[in-house]
Structure formats: C-alpha cells, structure tokens
C-alpha cells in the first residue's frame, strides 16, 4: 500500500519536473552541449589515431570541410 503511494508520488513529481519549460529547455541545451563536448573529444581522438578529416566527416554525417573548419588547426 505505502509502496504504491510512493511510486505514484515519484511519478507525479517526475511529471511535474519535466512540465516546467525552464527545466525542459535547459535539458535540450544541455544535451546539445554534451554532444558538442563528446564530438570535440572524439574528433581529437580520431585525429590522434590517424583518421582523415573525410573519414571523420563521414562518421559524423557531415562534410569534411565543416569538420576541418571546426576542429582543424
């Protein structure tokens, strides 16, 4: 009985938290930032391991030029 009530309360609070656009929109931004940080890290790693800009571009699904413009020295 009490377990069920706790679960319901948890569900409700989770729902309340995600219906606040300030939180939801920040989460979208945070995901984007996370993707940028992981991308920068992985591109650096790929370059260290001898990947060409073209190979990296293909792996990311973007043009070789755009990866190079973003991360090339």
């Amino acid at each position: 009985m009490s377990i069920q009530t706790d679960t319901m309360a948890d569900d409700l609070s989770a729902q309340l938290r995600t219906t606040d656009p300030a939180v939801g929109l920040r989460a979208v931004g945070a995901l984007r930032r996370l993707a940028e940080q992981v991308e920068a890290q992985q591109v650096a790693l790929a370059r260290e391991q001898g990947w060409s800009w073209e190979q990296i571009g293909d792996a990311l699904g973007v043009a070789r030029q755009s990866v190079h413009a973003k991360y090339g020295k």
Binding site: V23, G24, L31, L34, V38, A40
Partner: peptide, 18 residues
C-alpha cells in the same frame, strides 16, 4: 535538468575547448 528527463550526465574527464 537532464536528471529530470532521467538522463545521467557522463563524466567526460575535463572540458574540451571547442
């Protein structure tokens, strides 16, 4: 904000300058 969506933030071990 990510936790509110049930997402745990990974530890990337230091920021990478973009």
């Amino acid at each position: 904000a990510l936790a509110a969506l049930g997402i745990t933030s990974p530890d990337l071990g230091g920021a990478v300058a973009i």
